[in-house]
């Protein structure tokens, strides 16, 4: 509705305000304070004064080679998100919207990994990936694949966590795509069938184009989720071995809550904020190309 009368405009405002007020109060105001504090040095004791240090916290962060390494790990997470998670989640969404006899069973089991607490999932995978005796190495040996110490090898640790992450959240993202698939009108497929389109062709030429909005939602959630990822890394490797799987968010946590350098922690936070918003807006732009 492009033109609205005053009454409609007021209603629109009234619709936005309650949620927005809540969000601004509980999220945005603390966020602004956190940006403010990133220019100060503070030891996290309320009676200790904050000392203005300008860009020193940022300098400290950017000169730290571990930080750049952790950004590389974020890149792994994003790559996993788009190359592994997105196709799998989309396929799962297709599956639960097709007429398989086990549809109900599939729907429930696919969601299982997110229902279990992450601590349990993390621990289980530590065992499944355990060298020589874990299920995955056993299967790999059976297939004559090279032996890999998934969580113990610094080069593999982050990749392993990324893959476990995709396994965990595939069912979760399946829901997002599923909501999109059910919104596609049946008639489109009917006419597709009359034209003699195969299953793949229907997916390629009807489902995928109709799902643009949902791929956009997925992309934004994936990017922001990867940038701030904390839990699974913390549980499965603790950032190890020897800091190989450290993420910006685990570094932020350590700086602020372990070493009590809240200024440095906030500087990392602000960097993540800027990077995340920029990437999300960029994604939005890419998806909006060719829109009205």
């Amino acid at each position: 509705m492009i033109v609205g009368n005053t009454k409609q405009r007021r209603w629109d405002l009234a619709f936005i305000i309650p949620g927005l007020v809540l969000f601004v109060f509980f999220i945005i105001i603390p966020l602004c304070q956190s940006i403010f504090q990133s220019f100060y040095s503070w030891n996290g004791i309320s009676i200790s004064p904050m000392k203005y240090v300008g860009l020193k916290n940022y300098k400290y962060v950017f000169e730290n080679q571990d930080f750049w390494h952790s950004l590389g790990n974020v890149a792994w997470f994003m790559a996993g998100g788009f190359i592994v998670l997105m196709p799998i989640a989309f396929l799962l969404a297709l599956i639960i919207n097709k007429q398989y006899r086990l549809k109900r069973f599939f729907k429930t089991t696919y969601f299982m990994p997110v229902v279990l607490p992450l601590t349990a999932v993390g621990l289980m995978w530590v065992y499944l990936l355990f060298p020589a005796v874990g299920l995955v190495p056993v299967v790999m040996e059976w297939l004559h694949l090279p032996e890999i110490n998934f969580l113990g090898d610094p080069d593999w640790a982050i990749i392993s966590v990324v893959l476990v992450n995709e396994w965990t959240y595939a069912g979760f993202n399946m829901l997002i795509f599923s909501a999109g698939i059910v919104a596609i009108p049946e008639e489109l497929f009917e006419s597709g069938k009359i034209d003699g389109a195969s299953g793949w062709q229907q997916t390629r030429f009807i489902t995928l184009p109709m799902m643009k909005e949902y791929f956009k939602v997925f992309s934004i959630l994936c990017i922001t989720g990867c940038i701030k990822h904390f839990n699974l890394v913390f549980i499965m490797t603790g950032g190890g071995p020897n800091r190989a799987s450290e993420m910006p968010a685990t570094m932020l946590y350590n700086e602020a809550f372990v070493y009590k350098n809240f200024g440095v922690g906030n500087a990392i936070g602000v960097f993540l904020l800027v990077a995340g918003v920029t990437l999300s807006l960029l994604t939005n732009k890419i998806f909006s190309r060719g829109d009205d």
């Binding site: 927005l20 969000f23 601004v24 999220i27 945005i28 105001i29 603390p30 966020l31 304070q33 956190s34 504090q37 996290g44 934004i220 959630l221 922001t224 940038i227 701030k228 904390f230 910006p248 968010a249 932020l252 946590y253 602020a256 809550f257 809240f262 922690g265 906030n266 990392i268 936070g269 993540l272 904020l273 990077a275 995340g276 918003v277 999300s280 807006l281």
Partner: peptide, 16 residues
């Protein structure tokens, strides 16, 4: 505003 709000890790805004 809503976009900015979901990017930040929880530990950055916890104390404020």
């Amino acid at each position: 505003i809503f976009l900015a709000g979901i990017v930040l890790p929880i530990y950055a805004t916890l104390v404020p």
